[in-house]
């Protein structure tokens, strides 16, 4: 019962580990190289997308492929309000705007579509990405006559710290939601939506609000990511890959625990970065094989695998002890 049992037991060690990691991250620009800072920034970006995807899709079981749309809206907010010709609004304000606009779109889309179940919801949300991509393309070509836009340069450390701040906020939000009444409502929807409604859960509201919260973080991450990209066009901003990556990273890590998706995102993002730089010609091939293998052999993710191994070891040790008892 994780709602009533709010004791310090089993709370200290994860808390300490989180603190150590946080300190290591905050001080990274002082001891790490520029390359490291940039690399950790992209890893943080993937973690944010993955964890905010899990925030909604994990407990409710609705597979959203709209991530690229919300992320891209943030990227475009950046391109519009922070052009290389001079920022129209302060960077942090734009980060919030990007998040809010994504949230608003999510509210609208959610209210319209969350009655679609199963694969239909996945198809629809993916359709949303392509629709925005194509409309954006058309708009840029025929209305504004720009092929792409340039975003102002921002110091790499600043990008890193804002990404880190979004990450920390997201982790706190996720943690609080999981422990709250709201999290329980989401899990009951994921378990059985009809039953949840009949015990008084306002199913539509819970789903739409969570969808909007998760979109906020995706949009905010998009804004700051755009300052790293510096060049933005609809294909860059609304790349469908960003819809699939969070799903794969979450599954790769395992969605049962809060840290599963984080670990999945870290390993995947690192792997992707390394493959892209070390094996640019075989990158797609290797990456594809890893994806297929992960889905085939790690249905519960890495965390699930580790838990399974741990149980095996314990059983083996218990079995050994029992045998010894029998011998004496």
């Amino acid at each position: 019962m994780n709602i009533t049992r709010f004791t310090s037991k089993g709370f200290l060690i994860p808390g300490l580990i989180s603190l150590v990691i946080l300190i290591a991250l905050v001080t990274l620009p002082f001891y790490g190289s520029l390359y490291n800072v940039i690399m950790v920034t992209s890893i943080l970006m993937y973690i944010i997308l993955t964890v905010s995807w899990v925030l909604f899709s994990g407990p409710t079981g609705y597979m959203s492929l709209a991530t690229a749309a919300f992320f891209g809206i943030g990227i475009y907010a950046s391109a519009i309000f922070l052009p290389n010709t001079g920022a129209i609004l302060p960077l942090l304000v734009v980060v919030v705007i990007g998040g809010l606009v994504s949230s608003l779109v999510a509210l609208g889309v959610g209210a319209l579509t969350l009655r679609l179940r199963g694969i239909y919801f996945a198809i629809f949300t993916f359709g949303l990405v392509v629709l925005i991509l194509e409309l954006g393309n058309w708009w840029e070509h025929t209305v504004t006559h720009t092929r792409g836009r340039f975003v102002m340069l921002v110091d790499n450390d600043v990008i890193f710290y804002i990404m880190l701040a979004i990450f920390v906020l997201l982790m706190l939000t996720t943690y609080l939601i999981r422990r709250s009444k709201f999290g329980l409502a989401m899990r009951s929807i994921g378990e059985n939506e009809e039953a949840a409604a009949h015990i008084g859960v306002n199913v539509t509201m819970v789903k739409v609000i969570t969808f909007a919260i998760s979109a906020f973080f995706m949009g905010a991450a998009g804004v700051i990511w755009a300052t790293k990209l510096t060049y933005v066009d609809p294909y860059v901003a609304f790349n469908p890959l960003f819809s699939f990556m969070p799903v794969l990273m979450a599954i790769f890590g395992g969605m049962g625990q809060i840290y599963g998706p984080v670990i999945g995102a870290v390993i995947f993002a690192y792997l992707q970065e390394k493959l892209q730089t070390e094996f640019p010609y075989y990158y797609m091939l290797i990456f594809g094989f890893v994806l297929v293998a992960a889905i085939l052999y790690l249905p519960d993710g890495l965390i699930g695998l580790i838990q399974k191994l741990w149980r095996l070891i314990r059983r083996w040790r218990k079995g050994g002890a029992a045998k010894q008892d029998a011998n004496t």
Partner: peptide, 17 residues
């Protein structure tokens, strides 16, 4: 019922919502 939740949590959802 919510099969993957503990028994008590099933009922707790009822009294909460």
């Amino acid at each position: 019922i919510f099969t993957n939740m503990p028994v008590l949590q099933n009922v707790l959802a009822g009294s909460f919502f």
